[in-house]
Every structure is written in structure tokens, then in C-alpha cells.
Design a protein around this nucleic acid. Sequence first.
DNA 1: TACGGACTAGAGCGATCGATCCATCTAGGG
DNA 2: CCCTAGATGGATCGATCGCTCTAGTCCGTA
Lengths: 201, 201
Amino acid sequence: MNATERTTAQPEARSDTRTRLVVATATLLQRQGYEGTSVKQILREAEATYGSLYHFFPAGKEELAAEALRFGAADFTDLLRRGLSSADEPAEAVANCAHLLADTLRESNWTDGCPVAATALEIIGRSPVIQRTSDEALRQWRELIASKLKDGAIPEVKATALACTILSTLEGAELLSRVSSDDEPLHLAAEHLAQLVRASA
Amino acid sequence: MNATERTTAQPEARSDTRTRLVVATATLLQRQGYEGTSVKQILREAEATYGSLYHFFPAGKEELAAEALRFGAADFTDLLRRGLSSADEPAEAVANCAHLLADTLRESNWTDGCPVAATALEIIGRSPVIQRTSDEALRQWRELIASKLKDGAIPEVKATALACTILSTLEGAELLSRVSSDDEPLHLAAEHLAQLVRASA
DNA sequence: TACGGACTAGAGCGATCGATCCATCTAGGG
DNA sequence: CCCTAGATGGATCGATCGCTCTAGTCCGTA
């Protein structure tokens, strides 16, 4: 539109291919994990080439995967944030997170859930970079949940501990739901987590 | 050594290689998932060859993995059974399952937990055989937990629902514990699950 | 002793893996 | 107008993938 936009647009256009790579990788990672995703497939999906990939990510697949994990984790953070802010009551808010996750999963035909779960488990002890990235994401989510609990007048220590179990349950229920293609585990988790939070208030 | 041993050893020896294949695969699957485990590595670990593998499992890696998953699932069933029978109170028994899982994981340096988790997530929608095997294992565990709850005077409907969330939480807490190499999530899960069960009695 | 089925050994198949390399293209500053 | 750094396209690398195949060994039975 104008000179200002052109100059600001340049770094955007520059990193456009980079962004496509990250987005495509994030999607593929949560659907088929790290080892199940080939570089060729990423390039096809992102409409990019080897040249671009190794230009932006000199360390290759692993570096790209770590970046994609951070990107996908931000997505999941948004989902949690939406769920947590959907109600004043912490119990209700937590339950809504589970329902929201169930809806998202169902709509994507049980493919697009937490990006960390699928990738982290198969990589533990073999890729420190990815494991650390996963760990950071999980801790961030725990804090996000914990702060909502604290806002709801749950004492700090209790809130921190409870947030950990809430995230555990969400992740586990996602596993059960995805394997059985059935959102029941997530809805049950919602109910039981709400109960647990209410009991801790 | 002698004729008797030779004759009795034969059927055993016949299936010996098969067993080694299954055991080795089960271990590798839970440590690095399906795609992350190569056939060559399985053969090396099991001290077997291609000939043996395709003799016992004509359909190859996928068939072997499904069998290994069933084998590993039986192991996890044992762990649950031990935990559940360790106390009369269902709440205490469930908590002990989490503690037992934490101990097992810690002792194996965070590698040997639930064999389904690592494999199932990366394979969803791509290997019906393995997905179905995983689903069956998860349902079996739910029923195992549910029956303990029912024994503890929790009404059937409530018990079934609660068992699902208990398994979800165990699986999720295992994920968090493994990623962070810290058994805190599992011990917190134990505490919170006990609380949840007590509230449902 | 001869036979036949169960099992083993491992070379080799085509395909694909992640990664490298370099020619080429593009855009902005001199 | 050229120069250069950033970015791209894609052929190609050696290694490894899952798997097939043939030639064998072993052992109970006839």
C-alpha cells in the first residue's frame, strides 16, 4: 500500500517460506510424531525445497521440529487460555478446557490435539533439544492453569499441585479419546476435574 | 544335555526366537515408538534374523508390533493388578498404582512405562491393527480399575466413569513425569485420584 | 536312512531416509 | 547497472529402510 508497508512486508515475505515450514511441520508432528514424519513430506506439505529448509534451519530436521513444537505449543496455549477465561469459576473453566479440547479433536477427526504428546514420548532420551522444548511447554501450561486456580481463591501450593494433575488428566484423556475416536474420556475428565477443583477451593 | 531335555526343549526352542523377538520389540516400542524402531535394531536386540522374523510374523513389522504391544500390555496389566490389590480401600489402591508406576519408571530411568502411550499416538489413523490393539488394552485397564471400584461399593455407573478418568490421569501423569524426568506428577496424581475416589464412595 | 516341515542365515532388492552441494534467481544499495 | 547477500530449486550422496529370496540346518517320523 505504501512505503512503510513495503519495508515491513519484506521481512515477512522473507520469512514466508520459513513460516510455511514451521506450520506444516507442527501439523505433521502432532499427527504422526517425529520419526513418522519425513523431511520430504514436510517439504511437499509446505511447498518448500531442501535449499530453503537448510537455509533457515542449518541443523536440519531436529531444529525445525523444535521450532514447530514451540509454534504448536503456542496454539495449545491459546486453547487453554480460551477455556480458562470462559468462566469465572475455576472448576467450570477447567471443565471447559476439556470440552474445548474434545471439540477441537473431534472436528479435526482426532488428529489435532496437543502437539507435545505425540512427539515427546517417542523422543525421550534421544533428542535433548526436543525433550527440553516439550518440558518447557508443559511447565508453561501448568503455570497457566495454576494462575487461574489462584485467581479463584485456591491457595498457591494447592493450586500448583492441582494444575499438574489437571494437565496430566487432560493429556491422558486426549490419548484415550484419540485412540478410541470417542470424546467420552475428555468429557468425563471435565466432570471429574471440576469436582476435584471444587473440593480444593 | 540329554535326550529328555532335547525333546522337551524343542517346542520351547522353537518358540524361543519368537519370544525373544516379541520381548525385544515390546521394550523398544515403549522407549522409542513404532517409527523410531527399526527392524534391524529389533533383530540385533533379539539376536534373531530376518528369516526368523518373517517366518513367525509373515506380515512383518506391523504384525510383530501388534503382538509386542499385547505382550507389553499384559505387563502393565500386572502392574495395575498389583497396585489395585495392595489395599482394600479403592482410593488407596488407585494411589498405589500411581506410586508403583512412578517407581517402575524411575528405576528404568524413565523408559519403561505404559507400552501403549508411546506407540499409539504416532500411529493413530495409520495402522488400524495397532490402533485397535491399543484400544483393547486401554479398555481392559479401564475395566480392571472399574471392578476394583465396584468392589469398594462404588455404584456401577460411577465406577465405570471414574475408572476412565483414573486411567487418563495415570497416562497423562506418566507423560509429564517422563518428559521432566521427575516423579512428582505421578505422586500428585496419586493424591488427587485418591481424593476423587473417596468423594465418589 | 530318507524324507519333510520347522526354522535359520544373510545377501540383496528397490525405495526412501536426512543431508549436502551448487547453480540459479531475486531484490536493494552502491 | 552491477554487485552482493539472501533465498530457492533440485540433483545427488551414502546410509538405512522394510522386506524378499534362496540356500541351508535341524530334528522327528516313517
